[in-house]
Design a protein around this nucleic acid. Structure first.
Lengths: 346, 346
DNA sequence: CTGAAAGCGCTTACAG
DNA sequence: CTGAAAGCGCTTACAG
């Protein structure tokens, strides 16, 4: 293995200058005459020389790497969304000359796992990190922020006195829920149920609260029997509907699901019991998952632009790392109704 | 920002030992008495100390990071498969204590892009890298291997005299094609067409060759009009069939597609022209894409276990990085027929 | 404009 | 068993 062993000393020797000058050329110092710069660049290119990044970081440069941490409850692999997230972050980081170290957090309750995540920051492998899918105010993330690391968290509350190294991004779930309920109300529905998401996540809470507010604003009663627990996964939608059906109570004419996966599960359970969607019961989702368009029936839902959110999050994180003086600490994106075939007029 | 500024000197001072000893404890040297070790460990844990990784690498340790390079022709984001690949590599690397730096290569012909990829190796950000979706014998990958970097390439030929730092993995496409053709022949098909993949990729070539061999072995003629160009993407399947239909030649009774995406495209074009699958024409795919089961009609295909392949590739790459003396340089996995609804007996 | 030198935070022969 | 010291490959005040 003849690994290229060339270093700045060697480049300096070949170019007939000092290492200081080589470094100045590499770091685009302005006080290097064009002639000297070219002479050095020629040698650098001729030898395919790239400065050792560890040495650079140790000498005070940034690692130009960000961490991307995905909380996955065991089935990340299957999720189409996840891929979009990862790719979106990688490509936008790449535009800024940053690399992405991706990590999957299977169990945020496991101290070993938490330690391994924090280690990545303490080791200085990364200049900052983005967390997706975390509980609201996840303790170890709070700790990282308290330590001064630059951290971006998707789906998270911004505290009253935000630290300069904390970034947060959210969808306007309130507006989304209002659109969903208003649409169903417009179709003549009055008995509307809801299957909640994970209440430890901010979006779980805000979606539920948004639903309640929207119902009130439309002058509709919320039947407690129709407020069902869920956790954002397909199975929870399935289970929620099954429980509802078995309980023998009256059924709502429409159900709002915390996201599209939950809606898929709900529809699956409904179908299994011989109920048709939307003929017997209408279902509306949230997120506009890649599958929703192809689903039978095509799912009416609230669209959310996660790619755009992560693009902004990535840019803001990097700007913060580079100490651009920014006052923006929060990204909020709106969402909007997509009408397809899973809801009907009654 | 009170970033934890603690370093090994400080730990040494607090534990009343030298930095050498702290380092020995961290690196699990055997010649440290249990008592000393514990004393040091206590201080390390009390202060949440993790050695600076750049300093470790500079001093000769491994970065414990591998690169994952995905060639994406513009639509990686949409692909369910890609996600599985990424997650599979990350999780298995993580089991070995390695991190993954993921990079997307949009255009392998762009010298700037190629330079940025090679830079990652030269900078010593990573100890090795895995490439997925590359052309067979992609020149810049060959260059990296020649430089001595540890490289794993999925879907790639192994040279006669394999270098110790080159790893390769493939599916047994020959076997897969034999199964596909045998199955169709068994259903009574004699007029079988094929839509090829990207012939610059090894699997494009081997699938085509496998098809030709299989046809010969089944005693079937290959009609040149029914050998269609493609590139592994949905659109190419669509275009291939459209061209075939417009050309006015006789139609085959069955088509073998280079992968499931191509099959989806082919079926879409068929449907648009009023042809039913499998009633008018049978279609068989390759890969068993996550969508294939849900497709209408559910796609008969050849299943391939990419997750398993990447798991093995990741382990082998890391073993090679760690200089375990291994003779295995090639991973080959078999594939197998999955019968669903897109082929019929005639 | 440019070089010599200190320093970043580790690891590891070396000597005892 | 353990410490002092050299060295990894850079960057950047400092001095000229």
């Amino acid at each position: 293995m003849k690994k290229s062993e060339i270093n700045s000393t060697e480049i300096a020797r070949l170019a007939g200058v000092s290492r200081s000058t080589v470094s100045r050329v590499i770091n685009n110092y302005t006080n290097v005459p064009a002639e000297t710069r070219e002479k050095v660049m020629k040698v650098i290119e001729a030898h395919n020389y790239f400065p050792n990044v560890s040495a650079q970081v140790l000498a005070g440069k940034r690692a130009r790497t960000i961490g991307l941490f995905l909380f996955g409850q065991g089935r990340v692999s299957a999720d189409v969304l996840t891929n979009m997230l990862i790719v979106s972050v990688i490509e936008h980081a790449s535009e800024h000359g940053y690399y992405v170290l991706t990590h999957i957090i299977r169990d945020a309750k496991d101290t070993e796992v938490v330690k391994s995540v924090m280690e990545i920051f303490y080791q200085r492998r990364i200049d900052g990190g983005i967390f997706i899918g975390a509980a609201n105010r996840e303790p170890f993330i709070e700790e990282l922020i308290a330590e001064g690391f630059v951290v971006g968290v998707v789906d998270q509350e911004l505290p009253e006195q935000p630290e300069p190294n904390r970034i947060v991004s959210n969808f306007n779930n309130d507006s989304g829920m209002k659109q969903a309920v208003a649409y169903l109300a417009g179709l003549g529905h009055t008995g509307i149920g809801v299957i909640n998401g994970d209440m430890n996540r901010l979006s779980g809470k805000t979606k539920y609260e948004g639903f309640m507010t929207a119902m009130r604003m439309c002058g509709l009663q919320v039947n407690p029997d129709w407020v069902l627990d869920g956790d954002f996964h397909e199975t929870s939608g399935y289970n929620a509907v099954q429980t509802l059906l078995r309980s023998g109570v009256n059924l709502p004419t429409a159900i709002v699901a915390a996201n599209d996966s939950v809606a898929f599960g709900a529809i699956r359970a409904l179908k299994e019991q011989g109920l048709r969607v939307p003929d017997d019961i209408s279902v509306i989702g949230f997120d506009d998952h890649a599958m929703s368009e192809k689903h039978h029936p095509a799912l009416t839902t609230i669209r959310v632009d996660l790619g755009d959110m992560l693009k902004r999050m990535t840019s803001l994180l990097i700007a913060t790392i580079e100490q651009k003086t920014l006052t923006v600490k929060e990204i909020t994106l709106d969402c909007s109704l997509v009408v397809r075939d899973s809801c009907r007029r009654i």
